[in-house]
């Protein structure tokens, strides 16, 4: 009876080996050329919308921001500063306050 289990055990051990080494593959890769869609979505018009459209859309589309939850002015300030300090967004210093105010008006914590 135990002997009958042996083939099953062998199969299980093979199946649970995470990596099965093989000879080099016959698989081939084909060159790829694609076009990625872009977004022409702008931020909703309002005080500061020019500043945010001009400063933020070079690196990411507007949808990223419009999908964000309501956040405090402090949190929006931290986000804008992260874009400038960590990701080197070239935001003109005089636009920083305008952008934070725009985001807080659009998506401020209630």
């Amino acid at each position: 009876m135990f002997l009958n289990l042996l083939p099953v055990l062998v199969v299980l051990c093979v199946a649970s080996t995470p990596l099965a080494a093989r000879a080099a593959t016959t698989f081939e890769l084909k060159s790829v050329k694609i076009d990625l869609p872009d977004s022409d979505r702008m931020f909703p018009e309002g005080p500061g919308s020019d500043a945010i459209n001009n400063n933020c859309l070079a690196c990411h589309s507007a949808g990223m921001v419009l999908n964000q939850p309501a956040l405090s002015k402090q949190a929006w300030t931290a986000e804008v500063n992260k874009m400038i300090n960590n990701y080197k967004a070239p935001v003109a210093p005089e636009d920083v306050g305008t952008i934070v105010d725009y985001l807080t008006a659009l998506k401020g914590a209630k």
């Binding site: 694609i34 076009d35 990625l36 869609p37 872009d38 990411h60 589309s61 990223m64 999908n67």
Partner: peptide, 18 residues
């Protein structure tokens, strides 16, 4: 969205970068 090459229907969280 079905606008992205080599991809079927996907939930669009951000267009660029995708």
């Amino acid at each position: 969205t079905t606008s992205f090459p080599q991809k079927g229907p996907m939930i669009l969280q951000r267009t660029r970068p995708p």
